[in-house]
Amino acid sequence: MAMRSYPLSRVYGLIEPGPVVLLSTSHKGRINTMPVSWHTMMEFEPLLVGCVVSGNDFSFKALKATGQCVLSIPTVELATQVTGCGNTHGDQVDKFQTFGLTPMKAEFVGAPLIAECYANLECRVFDKRFMNRYNFFVLEVVKAWLDPACKKPQTLHHQGNGVFMLAGGTIKLPSRMQ
C-alpha cells in the first residue's frame, strides 16, 4: 500500500470525535445556539464532556459568564438548520427564530433544550482550568433527555469544509462494558 502526505489542515476530518451538537446558552435575557463538533467524553461518574468553543464566538462569553449550557444532538433532518446556525453569529441573529428551532425549559440550567433534537444534555461547567488557555470547557452533564420516538437517529459528523458524514448503522460486537 502506498502512502502519501496529507495536509495538516484537513486532519480534523479524519479524527472528528462524534456527532455535531448544538450548544445552547442563555445570558442577559438572550438565548443562542451554535454547532460544536470538537467535543469528547471524559468520564462516566460524574458524567463529564469536554468541548472547545472559540473565544471569538458569542456562546463563549455566555458559557464563561453563566457556567451553564445544553448540548443538543440533532439528526440529519436538521442539517440545514445546523449549518445555518454555524454560518451566522449569535450577536447578530436570533438563531432559534431564524432557523425554526423551539426552545424548551431545562430542569437544572438556564439554557434551553431544543425540542427538534433527539437528545438534550443539561450541563454545568465542572472545571475551568483549560478554559482561558485552550477555550476548552469541561462540562458535567446534570440531566439527559431523549425523544423516545426517534428510534434510529442519523447524526451528523463534520468532516470539514461543509462535508458531513451520516451515522446511523450499527454492528454488535463482544464487549466487557455493560
Rank of each mutant, 00 (worst) to 15 (best):
Met1Arg: 13
Ala2Met: 13
Met3Leu: 14
Ser5Thr: 15
Tyr6Asn: 08
Leu8Tyr: 09
Leu8Lys: 12
Gly13Tyr: 05
Ile15Lys: 05
Ile15Ala: 09
Glu16Ser: 11
Glu16Gln: 11
Glu16Cys: 11
Glu16Tyr: 11
Pro19Thr: 05
Val20Trp: 02
Val21Trp: 05
Val21Gln: 08
Val21Cys: 09
Thr25Pro: 01
Ser26Glu: 03
Lys28Ser: 06
Lys28Cys: 03
Gly29Leu: 02
Ile31Tyr: 01
Asn32Glu: 03
Asn32Ser: 02
Thr33Lys: 03
Pro35Tyr: 03
Val36Lys: 03
Ser37Phe: 00
Ser37Gln: 00
Trp38Gln: 06
Trp38Ile: 05
Trp38Leu: 09
His39Met: 02
His39Asn: 00
His39Cys: 04
Met42Trp: 00
Glu43Tyr: 03
Glu43Gln: 13
Phe44His: 11
Leu48Glu: 01
Val49Tyr: 04
Cys51Ala: 12
Val52Gln: 00
Ser54Ala: 06
Phe60Val: 01
Phe60Asp: 01
Lys61Ile: 06
Ala62Asp: 13
Leu63His: 08
Ala65Leu: 06
Thr66Tyr: 05
Gly67Cys: 07
Cys69Met: 05
Leu71Glu: 00
Ser72Asp: 04
Ser72Arg: 04
Thr75Gly: 13
Thr75Cys: 14
Thr75Ala: 09
Thr75Glu: 13
Val76Gln: 11
Leu78Asp: 03
Leu78Gly: 03
Val82Gly: 06
Thr83Phe: 07
Gly84Leu: 10
Gly86Tyr: 09
Asn87Arg: 11
Thr88Gly: 11
Thr88Ala: 15
Asp91Thr: 12
Phe96Leu: 14
Thr102Ala: 14
Pro103Thr: 15
Met104Val: 15
Lys105His: 09
Ala106Gly: 15
Pro112Ala: 08
Ala115Asp: 15
Glu116Gln: 14
Glu116Met: 08
Cys117Asn: 08
Tyr118Ala: 05
Glu122Leu: 04
Cys123Pro: 04
Arg124Gln: 05
Asp127Arg: 01
Lys128Asp: 14
Arg129Gly: 07
Phe130Pro: 07
Met131Phe: 11
Met131His: 12
Tyr134Gly: 01
Phe137Glu: 07
Val138Asp: 04
Val138Cys: 10
Leu139Arg: 12
Glu140Gln: 15
Ala144Gly: 14
Trp145Ser: 10
Trp145Glu: 09
Asp147Ala: 14
Ala149Asn: 15
Lys151Phe: 05
Lys152Leu: 13
Gln154Trp: 10
Asn161Gln: 13
Gly162Ser: 06
Met165Gln: 12
Ala167Trp: 10
Gly168Asn: 07
Thr170Trp: 04
Ile171Phe: 07
Ile171Met: 06
Lys172Arg: 12
Leu173Tyr: 10
Pro174Ser: 04
Arg176Gly: 01
Met177Lys: 08
